[in-house]
Every structure is written in C-alpha cells, then in structure tokens.
C-alpha cells in the first residue's frame, strides 16, 4: 500500500520536477543551495502527499507546497545577496537567433529579480508562470486587488533597479 503510494509519488514528481527546479532557480544561487532546497521541497511534498486528492492537478498542488517550503519552512535564508551573479553555468538553451543586446537585458533582469524579497519573488514567479491573480491571491493568502497592486509595485521596483 505505502509502496504503491511511493511509486505514484516518485513518478508524478519526476514528471513535474521542473516546477521545483524553477522555484530553486529563483530562490537560491549556486548548485548546492539549489539541490538542498530541491530536497527539502521534495520531502515536504512527500509528507503532504497522503492528503493529496486526485481531483486537483499534481502540478497545481505542488506549486503551493513548493512555494510554501521556499518562503516559510526552509530555514536557510533564500534571499540572495544583491551582488548575486547571474549564473551562467546553468545549462540554458540558446536559440539560433542569438541576440546579444537582448541577452544582456535578460541577464540584468535576472539580477534585479534576485534582489527582490521572498514574497516579491513569489509574485514574480507566478507571473512568469502565467498564473492569474485569482490563483496568486489564493496561494499567498492575500486579496486579489492587493496582489495586483503589489505586482505593479514590483514592476516599478524592478524598473528602478534597472535604471537607478
């Protein structure tokens, strides 16, 4: 019975692991920290798994547990220092139409996002993931209007970081 549960879980997690990787990319810098947070999120997902019901999508459910782990349960500070370098060692796939200027701008954007606090990163993360404000507000436990207001403020803040 529990073996069966374990098999199911491992399969679902393997298929949806990019969700966790993406959160780790945003909340950690360096490979070790990435792995460490990935592991803690996996443990928390596994702990919560017996209560997971099939009526929700695994990915939707995993988003919430993973974000909660990064923001709330994970003891080590996930806030990267302001000087965090854009980690070029990661295996980013480069397209044929390599655009130097665009690449530079993306690099700067990542650096700016790394300077945000945990909560702001969560909003940016869900924005990048095309989540609507209803889901953002439900996940974080804030009102939809305020989620919108905050997102606009973050955009302004990012602009300021980019053009001081």
């Amino acid at each position: 019975m529990s073996d069966h549960l374990e098999q199911d879980f491992v399969k679902q997690l393997r298929e949806n692991q990019n969700i966790i990787h993406k959160i780790c990319r945003l909340y950690t810098s360096g490979e070790d920290a990435h792995k460490d947070l990935f592991q803690e999120i996996t443990i928390q997902l596994w702990k919560a798994y017996p209560k997971f019901r099939g009526d929700a999508k695994f990915s939707t459910w995993a988003y919430r547990v993973a974000l909660n782990t990064a923001i709330t349960l994970y003891r080590k500070s996930t806030r990267s220092v302001a000087t965090t370098e854009y980690d070029s060692s990661r295996h980013f796939i480069r397209q044929e139409d390599y655009n130097y200027e665009e690449e530079e701008q993306i690099k700067l954007m990542y650096q700016a996002v790394y300077q945000l606090n945990d909560i702001e990163k969560a909003l940016v993360f869900m924005y990048l993931e095309d989540k609507d404000y209803a889901e953002i507000s439900e996940t974080l436990g804030i009102s939809e209007v305020n989620a919108r207001v905050k997102m606009n403020r973050i955009k302004t803040k990012l602009k300021k970081i980019l053009n001081p």
């Binding site: 919430r64 969560a122 974080l140 436990g141 804030i142």
Partner: peptide, 10 residues
C-alpha cells in the same frame, strides 16, 4: 499544513 495559503501557514 503546507497546502494552506502562505499567509495561513505562517
């Protein structure tokens, strides 16, 4: 519960 909203969990 980790499945609650972040605010609730905190």
């Amino acid at each position: 519960s980790t499945t609650a909203s972040t605010r609730q969990l905190m």
